[in-house]
Design a protein around this nucleic acid. Structure first.
Length: 856
RNA sequence: GGAUUCUUAGCUCAGUUGGUUAGAGCAUCUGCCUUACAAGCAGGAGGUCAUAGGUUCGAGUCCUAUAGAGUCCACCA
């Protein structure tokens, strides 16, 4: 027997290991159709946050749903080495021990990284277990294992040989703290307080100067020109003349270039080709020198003279003093402008001239766009608008900087000897030196959908069976980092898209709508929520409380409501189990009206739920199930069944519907549904997770009963309201007639507790005052009269109520008559709707008649 | 500058291909410890669906504009 209260801790203990040990998470039944999901790999040393909890819940729901629908489901777990993040942590740790990364050397540093990974890695596995994720651990991968490394090498070498990967000297985004290049996606732009510094650049041989406005005065050491717009009447005559760069006193030309915007600043812009991407382009057009004035740690080089060794910010403040002293500073204008910061280290990104590896994107992007235009081969996004986002990204693509000046990662498989350069995993021979850099973590992540399946391994059987994958779920924040790149790499190397459906969920925010962050201290740990409410509650809450692609404000009160819902299910199960203990088999004979009604309702719920599950509309599934279980099954059917517990058909219906409810809920609430399933007197399988998902059953669809019972329920509610409005107590004498079967009459009397002792005698009918409630619907009508001595006051109250009712009815009738006399509506609207309107109008008219009669 | 999302009850959110009386949770009011559940039951109250136009027989839903809020991309000397 179940306890009276649901205890999530008790329920969730032990089940995960049982499932896992019984092999329910493993794929491999080749008699079934495969269905593959690849888990987006979290940072190996990271921990589960609410966003992950949401993400894995969605995937587990799909995995369990598909498994119950007869698919051979493979859900691949894995983790990511997270190059920059991990390396930064290890560097910090070593530093605290007084060890410098470079002094330690590459090999020993990597050992330290592996130690770190082993020490802090693997926690995430326990968290997947807490959440109930049905992952196939026999296929677990890591971005630095052979599956991944082999694929990365193979892809890199192939792209290198095709010319899709090249090495180039460019201005890239540089993180001076991590001392590595970054891709454009890894730069976060933030509004920052700064200033326009107006500096005098004297025109050579004159006392005139140009007012040059810059936000970064310290870069003047690298100036090799000053540009004006060739159409700018203010300055066009100056083109060809020279100016003197202040402090360094370098003579540089005034050039005409469209880059100079007449509207912006003073219309004069200093050109620093080695420290600004736009200036770099200008420099190329005008053949300007590139003077590097900062090193890899953003400290000034010897080009800056006495400022050598200064940090970039120190240099700025000292330089400004000097400019002021020398009366070269015209003014300082405060502005707010957006400045790039490193996604990982949060330091200000420095545009930096260096040699890096790039993926050439133009053709690849075109291939992606073509693929997306083909209905059969494209990725279906949920919600659909992300298809457009992807296409837009592809259209405005720029080359992807993939080299990182780090050690923790997959090393670039390129070897050098003198002027020669060869791409190869192994050294081509004596005297060859490998490129020191590693690849962007996202380069390996991009291959994840096929690398994990053994695409670059000898045994390709998994790849052949389970690729392309079926379902991908992730937050919209990494669409460019990851989804886009997975798509083009799979297209380039497998000729197919990596997944058929891609579900994008939003971000989790704090209750007030702000982002959850450490600095605000408003973060919520999913594991704490699991502890407090159970994984079942958390999963259901996260997945049914928002529409696809939209953010979710985390609200613990709603989690409580979800817990209450589970407690409700628990108690409905408790009731059911108490009443079906002796059942031998499910037999639908001698079904009562209410049995037929709930079976019909159940059937239509199954239909709706399946439809929405197939479209990943989980919020709809959630409300369908909530409504059916709470309003129909518990408040409606269970109450009816209480007067019918000896009936075999009713027992069968209770068990059948409860079993179906558990199965439909199982993908959302795996633990509690398994707990209750195990107590069912009749069940097909050892575990609910290997049982089948409910299907619509035509034999159990009783449409007429549905309508009749809806009327009966409406009558019951109306009677209750009526009694309450008129202060009619339990002992009031009554008479009752209804059009339905004797069974219906009994049901109503039972539910409304119309005590047989209180039926009014003829004498009472003749002498006492009465209150009458008439109910008319085309398939059911009922009349109930209550007899008692009525006061004048009550009589007035009743009259008032009737008048109000009259008004409402009259306006409704008028509205409906107008509607039905509109030929446009009658001709164009669906016939059933028109019929229904007509019926309603009829009933309202009848009702109005009674009200009018009573008023007399 | 380009794209995109949101604006629905006091609060947080649902609302399928347009179908006429817009739903839920929480909060609130009334009455109930009825033996599955008081973390519950029964019955209420609460909304001119941001604004203004348009399409349509019919608009929360489609179109246009406006206002406010958010996000992404590009630019930012």
């Amino acid at each position: 027997m179940l306890e009276t209260k649901y205890d999530h801790k008790k329920v969730e203990t032990g089940k995960y290991d049982t499932w896992k040990n019984n092999g329910y998470f493993k794929c491999g039944d080749t008699s079934k159709e495969p269905f593959t999901i690849i888990l987006p790999p979290p940072n190996v040393t990271g921990k589960l946050h609410l966003g992950h909890a949401w993400d894995v819940s969605i995937q587990d729901i799909v995995a369990r749903y598909k498994r119950m629908n007869g698919f051979d489901v493979l859900w691949v777990p894995g983790t990511d080495h997270a190059a920059i993040a991990t390396e930064a942590k290890v560097v910090k740790k070593l530093k605290s021990e007084g060890i410098n990364k470079y002094e330690l050397g590459r090999d020993k540093f990597l050992d330290a990284c592996w130690d770190w990974t082993r020490e802090y890695g693997g926690n995430i596995r326990g968290e997947w277990a807490h959440m109930g994720c049905s992952l196939d651990y026999t296929k677990e991968r890591f971005t630095l294992d052979d599956y991944s490394v082999n694929a990365v090498n193979k892809v890199f070498i192939d792209m290198f040989n095709k010319g899709l990967i090249y090495k180039g000297k460019r201005i890239i985004n540089w993180d001076p703290e991590a001392k590595t290049a970054l891709s454009n996606e890894e730069v976060i732009y933030k509004d920052t307080k700064g200033a326009f510094y107006h500096i005098k650049y004297y025109i050579e041989g004159t006392d005139d100067y140009l007012d040059v406005a810059t936000t970064r005065p310290e870069t003047l050491f690298g100036d090799t020109a000053v540009a004006v717009n060739p159409k700018d009447p203010r300055y066009k005559d100056l083109i060809g003349k020279n100016v003197i760069v202040p402090i360094v006193n370098r003579i540089v030309p005034i050039i005409g270039d469209m880059h100079a915007d007449m509207e912006k600043g003073t219309g004069v812009v200093k050109i620093t080709p080695a420290h600004d991407p736009n200036d770099f382009e200008v420099g190329n057009r005008h053949n300007l020198d590139r003077i590097v004035i900062m090193d890899e740690t953003a400290h000034m080089t010897e080009e800056t003279g006495k400022y050598k060794g200064y940090d970039r910010f120190e240099c700025r403040s000292e330089l400004l003093k000097e400019l002021e002293d020398k009366e070269l500073l015209i003014e300082i204008e405060d502005i707010v402008h957006s400045v790039g910061y490193s996604e990982r280290t949060d330091v200000m990104v420095e545009p930096y001239l260096s040699e890096q590896w790039f993926v050439k994107m133009d053709q690849i992007s075109k291939d992606l766009i073509n693929m997306q235009q083909d209905k059969d081969s494209k990725v279906n996004f949920y919600p659909k608008r992300y298809e457009k986002t992807i296409i837009q990204k592809a259209e405005e693509c720029y080359d992807w900087c993939i080299s990182r000046q780090l050690w923790w990662g997959i090393r670039i498989p390129v070897w050098y000897k003198d002027d020669e350069m060869v791409a190869s995993v192994e050294s081509p021979g004596e005297g060859w030196v490998q490129d020191p850099d590693v690849l962007d973590t996202w380069f390996s992540s991009a291959l994840w959908p096929f690398s994990t399946l053994g695409w670059a391994m000898e045994d390709k059987s998994l790849f052949e069976r389970y690729f392309p994958t079926n379902f991908m779920s992730t937050g919209y924040d990494i669409i460019f980092f990851w989804v886009f790149r997975m798509m083009f790499q799979a297209e380039q190397f497998t000729g197919k898209n990596p997944f058929k459906d891609c579900y994008m969920h939003g971000l989790i925010r704090a209750k007030d709508g702000r982002k959850m962050s450490k600095s605000l201290g408003n973060g919520v740990e999913p594991i704490d929520m699991v502890e407090k409410y159970g994984a079942d509650s958390l999963r259901y809450y996260l997945t049914t409380n928002s529409a696809p692609g939209l953010d979710l404000r985390f609200d613990e009160d709603k989690l409580t409501s979800t817990w209450n819902f589970i407690n409700k299910i628990w108690n409905a199960s408790r009731y059911t189990l108490m009443n079906i203990e002796d059942i031998k088999e499910i037999k639908f004979n001698n079904l009562s009206f209410s049995d037929k009604w709930i079976l019909t309702k159940f059937n239509s719920t199954v239909k709706q739920v399946r439809k929405n599950m197939d479209r990943y509309e989980f919020q709809n599934v959630g409300s369908e199930l909530y409504d059916f279980i709470w309003s129909d099954f518990c408040d409606g059917y269970i109450e009816f069944s209480k007067f019918n517990t000896d009936n075999e058909g009713t027992k069968s219906t209770l068990l059948y519907v409860l079993t179906g409810i558990l199965k439909m809920l199982h993908p959302f609430m795996p633990f509690v549904t398994e707990e209750i399933y195990q107590m069912l007197p009749i069940k097909n399988c050892d575990s609910i997770m290997i049982d089948s998902y409910p299907v619509y059953d035509k034999k159990l669809d009783f449409k007429e009963t549905l309508e009749l019972m809806n009327s009966v329920r409406e009558f019951i509610t109306k009677t209750r309201t009526y009694k309450k409005d008129n202060n009619i107590g339990k002992d009031c004498k009554y008479t009752f007639r209804c059009s339905g079967d004797k069974e219906i009459e009994n049901l109503i009397c039972n539910v409304l507790k119309l005590d047989i002792k209180n039926i009014a005698y003829q004498e009472e009918i003749d002498t006492l005052e009465k209150l009458v409630l008439d109910y008319n619907n085309n398939d059911f009508s009922a009349n109930i009269e209550f007899y008692y001595s009525i006061s004048l006051e009550d009589r007035e109250k009743e009259k008032e109520a009737l008048n109000k009712q009259k008004e409402v009815l009259e306006s409704q009738i008028a509205r409906r008559e107008k509607l039905l006399s509109n030929p446009g509506y009658v001709n164009n609207a669906p016939k059933e709707l028109v019929e229904e309107e007509k019926n309603k109008l009829e009933n309202e008219k009848k009702e109005l008649e009674t009200v009018l009669w009573k008023l007399k």
